[in-house]
Design a protein around this nucleic acid. Structure first.
Lengths: 150, 150
DNA sequence: TCAATATCAAGAATTATTCTAATTATCATT
DNA sequence: AATGATAATTAGAATAATTCTTGATATTGA
């Protein structure tokens, strides 16, 4: 019994970064338990997880959550501009809490996805010849390649 | 009977642009009948058709072609760098014979897809902060928005 | 011509995602 | 706290694009 309590206490020591506080509401969206945990995982796992990745991780805290709910949560978070959805070719969508304007470099050798930002002071409109009158609502810049090993 | 022949002759007058000649082989890829017709349609229809769009059009000339074959043809043409595959969000892939470096602006109001090029003299490496050693194999720049109606 | 290889067709299988219907939780009022 | 209204969640079925499988055809090279 003592051993059981000790184990329980030990297991409470966080091996993850300190828990992130998430408010009751973000951008007018009520943070339900499921949405909160989904969002928390995106904050912690910065490696652009898929819906299924999130599902597997979130089950630690909400064992009864369904994959459909994870999809629902991710969708509503995207719709409210709280996270971004990122697509590579026709692979599963990935999700990312980084809202600043950035693209993604997909290292084919390792599978790692790196965020890529513009050089300071440069914006997309500076470099592209857009159709006259174009009003841009969303931009996706995706690069595939490898990182040279020195 | 005469009327029938006359109608048949009239129907032979091309309403499409003059037929495009396609060589026996492109980039080391043998142009079979199916590949040739698929490629011809991409050359003619510059509106970024989906595999199914191509399938419907190609059936005029090859009534027995299957959708699987259209997918096969498109895939092998992409693999040989003869055409490009373009993805918008999670919609059906679209295909495009324009090989020059360019992005795509998707007008949400009309559904029209415009090719977008860099301003002269500017290349992507000029404007992005890439991870050190990054070797880029492929770039996808996708914009969504509307065209302002003056 | 004949064998080896490549391509094609038809339909089944796969996979990510969305939908449906039933249940549960939350909120605003009393 | 009970009540009704609304929103969220669940489980599993449905969907749609694409890929796979298998057997048939076509093409090439000897």
């Amino acid at each position: 019994m003592l051993a059981y309590f000790a184990a329980a206490m030990v297991s409470k020591i966080p091996d993850q970064p300190l828990e992130i506080e998430i408010p009751e509401e973000i951008s007018g969206l009520r943070m339900t338990r499921q949405r909160r945990e989904v969002y928390r995982i995106l904050q912690q796992e910065r490696n652009h997880p898929t819906a299924n990745d999130v599902f597997m991780r979130v089950k630690d805290r909400l064992p009864n959550i369904s994959l459909a709910t994870v999809y629902n949560c991710l969708e509503v978070l995207v719709q409210h501009g709280i996270i971004r959805q990122v697509n590579f070719e026709r692979e599963s969508s990935r999700y990312c809490p980084n809202l600043s304007e950035h693209g993604h470099f997909h290292d084919e050798a390792t599978g790692v996805i790196h965020d890529v930002v513009f050089k300071p002071g440069i914006t997309l409109a500076d470099v592209l010849q857009l159709p006259p009158g174009a009003l841009i609502q969303d931009v996706e810049i995706t690069l595939r390649g490898k990182i040279a090993t020195t």
